[in-house]
Amino acid sequence: MSMQTLKPYLAEHPFLQGMAERHIELLVGCASNVRFDEGQYIFREGDEANEFYFIRHGKLALEVFRPHKGGIVVQTLKAGDVVGWSWLIPPYFRHFDCRAVELTRAIVLDGTCMREKCNEDYQLGYEIMKRFAHVMEDELLALRLQLLDIYGGTT
């Protein structure tokens, strides 16, 4: 798929809602199309984090490996979600394993390319940071709720 055909997919992704067209153009310059087969690992804990993904369809799982327990899924992500923010934060390492639970198609953005563009165009950088802050807030909220173990009951 050519770069230009990615533009409509990016433009309609919830993460980029309301983004200026010129910024989308900049993103397209760092984007390419990917697919992951069921069971395939997208990245592993400790890997360098030089990509992030807009899921178009399918489902990904973030896992932590525990000896004798296997990979414990801590979060699942699917169409409309964005995966990975470690590319934004030095020293750019992955903290989890990411596995495709089913056949998943996504648009991958090159983190190095994105970092450069964000440094050149602070307005783009702000737009991206703002959107990731939103994702981080949602995830932090969900995590705190998860910690409460609310269904466990208190008896």
Binding site: V73, A79, D138, A142
Partner: peptide
């Protein structure tokens, strides 16, 4: 359907139920 804590047999969603709302 989502669970707060998955296990080896679980292939479904993991996360609190509120994470299902936005999508």
């Amino acid at each position: 359907v989502t669970v707060d804590r998955g296990d080896e047999s679980w292939w479904g969603n993991v996360g609190v139920v509120t994470t299902l709302v936005p999508r």
